[in-house]
Design a protein around this nucleic acid. Structure first.
Length: 554
RNA sequence: GCCCCCGUAGCUCAGGGGAUAGAGCAACGGUUUCCUAAACCGCAGGUCGCAGGUUCGAAUCCUGCCGGGGGCACCA
């Protein structure tokens, strides 16, 4: 019996009470009843507070209503007992057979266990990182890479179709500063005042000159462009290969220039004009974002004829919507928080509902400590902890997991020594180890000729406390994934896996799975092996949602 | 001046109306003739920033304040 099935039984019980005229609910029977896993075992396998919530509306005593529900519920074969407790909680004990059947449910679903249809039909655009191609990806980008990618995986787990996009700001003055800095370094000069000074600039310049020695002899104007374009190409390629190595795949690398090369910007303007949100003043073209709560109108085309970043952003959004995405999700760093208001206003200006089509997730910044001192990250100053360095130091799995297991909207402080530690201080090993241990049992079982197939599986043999805890943990997985997708919070999956790993390790310590010595293979061995196989499946699926590997050996 | 995030164990952080507030790390003690000890078991650790309010019930929701981080505006 899964929590979903219990919830369904409770709704059915409520419906029967209403149909029998014993219960009157002004708002009707709720479509879903929340069921939770109690913290203490005296409170049963599952508990619900539905009686407390409905009693007032129904004009009843909560305990009385809970008792009626209990009486209805126990007519179900899968329910062993139901008791009223406290002010009106209903504590439910599930029959061992019904609970053990969860293992079979998991195995039958296989890699699909955990997938739901809660977001089915949605086509979601998820934009994240979107770093300028003027320097390496750093720790902040690394957080969005891990979290953004995990969000995409979780959304897909809930049935959505997701496109992951990286917006490349390859236009504007920053690019020229970048080109000028590369050129200066190639000539052994200091970068200009607004230039980039990190050591990576010199390294890039060297690579460019090595590949094309004649570049330094070009006229200054041409040379700057040549350096800019060569540097752009190298930096972008580096972003792409590093992110692939970090197990973060983008479906679309969207160039800002392409918006201007096509008619996208004009299409954006046309949309705004249709909506009556465009006007000219002082020689500039404005969007009337104040119609939708922005604190001032925004310039799209300056009086000198050049287009603002916001013009690109508007065109980009319109382009996404024209490609059929709903909603468009942006994952932005807290340093871009001031941008949210005008993005929302912009979406409204083109005729969308910002509550529906546009969603901005603000991620707080990451701090990194080394020897108790904060490492200040600055592309300009060249003090960068880059994605490349992090992958080399910590490894993709540990780095991804560490970043994903915290909610993105909570500020995060990581310690270099802790992150670089490959010891068991890192929770990722705790979870991966569970998978490795499970795999090992299955290998040994194969050697002993004990099958984990479902023929003759007797779920009622999984009756110990530890087996029950583990089964309930497994049954929780689909709800966790659905909730993580709904809230865009993949850290819930990581925390869930940690809890489930604990339940498994405890089970492992208490329950012998395989026969010892010359013992005969019993149905209990076989049942436990089914449970082991099911548990391994959940870890594999869960780690997959985080983009973290599930090793068979450690 | 306004807006957003945060404040929970010594440290890093979960929990975001429900029963006795949790995990990891750090500290202390124990467990391996037996499926992976990267594990398990035990012990210890808390005015959930402060003050009001909402209600059967608040760490959780509302208001105010304090503290930390970030953003916008203003000034230049």
């Amino acid at each position: 019996m899964t929590p979903e099935q219990l919830s369904t039984s409770l709704v059915a019980a409520l419906t029967r009470l209403v149909d029998a005229g014993r219960l009157a609910l002004p708002d009707g029977v709720p479509s879903e009843v929340r069921v939770e896993r109690p913290k203490v075992k005296e409170h049963g396998d599952y508990a619900t507070n539905v009686a407390l919530q409905l009693a007032k509306r129904a004009g009843l005593n909560p305990r009385e209503l809970a008792q009626w529900l209990a009486d209805e519920l126990v007519t179900d074969d899968g329910i062993e007992g139901a008791e009223v407790a406290g002010p009106g909680f209903l504590n439910v004990r599930v029959a061992a057979g019904a609970q053990g059947a969860v293992a079979a449910t998991v195995l039958e679903a296989g890699t699909d266990f955990g997938r739901t249809a809660t977001l089915a039909g949605q086509r979601i655009d998820l934009e994240f990182i979107s770093a300028n191609p003027t320097g390496p990806l750093h720790l902040g980008h690394t957080r969005w890479a891990a979290v953004g990618d995990a969000i995409a995986r979780v959304l897909e787990g809930a049935g959505a179709v997701v496109t992951r996009e990286f917006y490349v700001n390859d236009r504007g003055v920053q690019m020229d500063h970048f080109g000028a800095s590369l050129m200066a370094r190639a000539h052994g000069e200091e970068p200009p005042e607004d230039g980039y000074v990190g050591s990576y600039v010199s390294a890039l310049a060297d690579r460019i000159v090595t590949a094309d020695p004649g570049i330094v002899d070009l006229p200054r104007d041409e040379q700057l462009v040549a350096f800019r374009e060569a540097g752009y190409a190298l930096q972008l390629a580096e972003h792409q290969s590093e992110l692939e190595e970090f197990n973060t795949h983008f479906d679309v690398w969207f160039s800002e220039r392409s918006l201007h090369d096509s008619d996208a910007v004009e299409k954006g303007f046309a949309r705004l004009r249709e909506q009556g949100r465009l006007y000219e003043q002082d020689g500039a073209l404005w969007m009337r974002t104040t119609d939708f709560g922005d604190d001032k109108d925004r310039v799209l085309r300056k009086s000198d004829g050049s287009l603002t970043y916001f013009a690109s952003d508007t065109a980009y959004y319109v382009d996404k919507r024209d490609r059929g995405f709903d909603p468009c999700i942006y994952l932005l760093g807290a340093d871009h928080h001031g941008y949210v208001g005008r993005l929302r206003a912009m979406a409204a200006c083109v005729g969308d509902d910002p509550q529906q089509q546009l969603e901005v997730l603000i991620g707080q910044l990451v701090k990194i400590l080394q020897d108790g001192q904060e490492l200040k990250l600055s592309k300009r100053a060249g003090t960068i902890v880059s994605l490349r360095e992090l992958i080399d130091l910590v490894g993709t799995d540990a780095m991804r997991y560490t970043l994903i297991r915290y909610p993105a909207d909570s500020p995060l402080t990581l310690d270099v020594s802790e992150m670089t530690s490959r010891s068991n201080e890192n929770p990722v090993y705790y979870v991966q180890y569970a998978h490795a241990r499970l795999s090992s049992i299955l290998r040994n079982a194969a050697d002993l000729g004990v099958g984990d197939d479902l023929d003759g599986f007797d779920p009622s043999l999984l009756s110990t406390e530890q087996e029950g805890s583990l089964l309930r943990a497994l049954a929780e997985f689909p709800r966790v994934v659905a909730r993580a997708a709904e809230l865009r919070e993949p850290h819930r999956v990581a925390r869930y896996l940690e809890d489930t790993a604990s339940a498994f390790h405890t089970f492992y310590g208490a329950c012998r799975v395989l026969p010892q010595g010359d013992e005969d293979v019993t149905d209990t061995h076989r049942a436990r092996l089914v449970l082991v196989a099911a548990t391994r499946q959940v870890f594999a699926n869960g780690l997959g949602l985080l983009g973290v590997s599930a090793p068979d050996r450690m």
